[in-house]
Computed example of a mutant assay.
Amino acid sequence: MTNLISVERLKKRLENNQDNTVIVDTRFKLDDEDAGRKLYLESHLPGAVYLDLNRDLSGKILKHGGSHPLPDFPNFIEKLGNIGIDEDTTVVIYDEGNDMFAARLWWLLDALGHDKVYILEGGYARWVEEGNEVTDAIPSLKPKKFTATFDEDKIVDMQTVREKLDTDAVLIDSRAKNRYLGDYEPLYSKAGHIPGAKNYPWQAVLSADGKWLKGEELQQHFSDLDKNDEIIVSCGSGVSACVNIIALKAAGYENVRLYPGSFSDWISYDENEIEIGED
């Protein structure tokens, strides 16, 4: 997958003092919103800056829009510039392991047209496992001017999803199967899934040893999907869906869009139906 960078490759990049690289720590826990920032302050990769899912990678929660709505893009673009990112900067993102929060930032940057963005394979955990240095030093940042425009074609809203239910478009639900089926729902007031959605849990694009699927394994994973289909990817709030989007694009699927509000937005409309169990 061209969207990944190995620990060894990043280490060599840092050793060669390639100063047009910004490393971003995105560690986060949904059940403890301060945990990621605390982990960063304790130790992080040398030179890394921290972006928080709630404070930085999401916008204000309203009645509709889901529990992690997209950020206000003019403010987000300015924030990226303030931490040293512009359109020519190489951005390396890491999570605790191969987790969903790095994928969220990757997707946001991709939607802004940035094409030099990589996720660290194995994340912080693998960096440490391989004996590399970490630090608690907060880097000094050199602000830049990031000129970018959000590509609205990367997303669909609730009304579009509703209209697509009776078409050939494929709606993917990226949550764990028990949440998709409605057997378990720890976060929302309603359980189940959007009618017609197919379940492709985001963690299934990772192998048993925690690496991203590649090549034939990745092709096989999505083999029931036609590459000519329009694919809309959702989850609970538009975060873990980004993992599936990265994997789909790596597998050669081009007509892929995100439903940012996902299930948490869908259920905010009382008139929307919900399915329980298998189709």
Results as ranks from 00 to 15, higher is better:
residue 187 L to A: 12
residue 187 L to D: 14
residue 188 Y to R: 09
residue 190 K to H: 14
residue 190 K to I: 12
residue 191 A to G: 14
residue 191 A to Y: 11
residue 192 G to W: 03
residue 193 H to K: 09
residue 193 H to Q: 09
residue 194 I to H: 01
residue 194 I to C: 01
residue 194 I to R: 00
residue 194 I to N: 00
residue 195 P to W: 06
residue 195 P to V: 04
residue 196 G to L: 05
residue 198 K to S: 09
residue 198 K to G: 01
residue 200 Y to I: 06
residue 200 Y to T: 02
residue 200 Y to R: 06
residue 201 P to L: 02
residue 201 P to W: 02
residue 202 W to F: 15
residue 202 W to L: 07
residue 203 Q to D: 12
residue 204 A to Y: 12
residue 204 A to V: 07
residue 205 V to C: 09
residue 205 V to T: 15
residue 205 V to K: 05
residue 205 V to A: 09
residue 206 L to Y: 07
residue 206 L to T: 07
residue 207 S to N: 14
residue 207 S to R: 11
residue 207 S to H: 08
residue 207 S to V: 07
residue 208 A to P: 02
residue 209 D to M: 14
residue 210 G to N: 11
residue 210 G to D: 10
residue 210 G to L: 11
residue 211 K to W: 07
residue 213 L to D: 09
residue 213 L to I: 11
residue 213 L to S: 09
residue 213 L to N: 10
residue 214 K to P: 00
residue 216 E to Y: 08
residue 217 E to F: 08
residue 217 E to T: 06
residue 217 E to R: 12
residue 217 E to C: 06
residue 218 L to R: 04
residue 221 H to I: 10
residue 222 F to C: 05
residue 223 S to Y: 12
residue 223 S to E: 15
residue 224 D to Q: 14
residue 224 D to L: 13
residue 224 D to Y: 08
residue 225 L to M: 14
residue 225 L to F: 13
residue 226 D to Y: 14
residue 226 D to F: 13
residue 228 N to V: 09
residue 230 E to C: 04
residue 231 I to W: 04
residue 231 I to R: 03
residue 231 I to E: 03
residue 231 I to F: 08
residue 232 I to N: 05
residue 232 I to C: 09
residue 233 V to W: 03
residue 234 S to W: 10
residue 234 S to T: 15
residue 235 C to A: 11
residue 235 C to S: 13
residue 235 C to D: 14
residue 236 G to R: 02
residue 236 G to E: 02
residue 236 G to L: 04
residue 237 S to D: 08
residue 237 S to G: 15
residue 237 S to P: 03
residue 237 S to T: 15
residue 239 V to Y: 03
residue 239 V to S: 04
residue 239 V to P: 01
residue 240 S to D: 05
residue 240 S to E: 10
residue 240 S to H: 02
residue 241 A to C: 12
residue 242 C to H: 02
residue 242 C to Y: 04
residue 243 V to M: 14
residue 243 V to P: 00
residue 243 V to E: 05
residue 244 N to C: 06
residue 244 N to R: 06
residue 245 I to D: 01
residue 246 I to D: 00
residue 246 I to R: 03
residue 247 A to Q: 03
residue 248 L to N: 00
residue 248 L to V: 01
residue 248 L to Y: 00
residue 249 K to F: 01
residue 249 K to S: 08
residue 250 A to E: 15
residue 250 A to Q: 13
residue 250 A to P: 00
residue 250 A to C: 10
residue 250 A to K: 01
residue 250 A to N: 15
residue 251 A to S: 05
residue 252 G to N: 10
residue 252 G to M: 12
residue 252 G to I: 10
residue 253 Y to V: 06
residue 253 Y to T: 05
residue 253 Y to M: 10
residue 254 E to C: 07
residue 254 E to W: 09
residue 255 N to T: 08
residue 255 N to S: 13
residue 256 V to R: 01
residue 257 R to I: 09
residue 258 L to T: 03
residue 258 L to Y: 02
residue 258 L to G: 01
residue 259 Y to L: 06
residue 260 P to I: 08
residue 261 G to I: 05
residue 261 G to V: 07
residue 261 G to Q: 08
residue 262 S to W: 01
residue 262 S to T: 03
residue 263 F to N: 02
residue 263 F to P: 00
residue 263 F to Q: 03
residue 264 S to L: 11
residue 264 S to I: 09
residue 265 D to L: 08
residue 265 D to I: 05
residue 265 D to Q: 09
residue 265 D to Y: 05
residue 266 W to I: 07
residue 267 I to L: 10
residue 267 I to Q: 08
residue 267 I to Y: 06
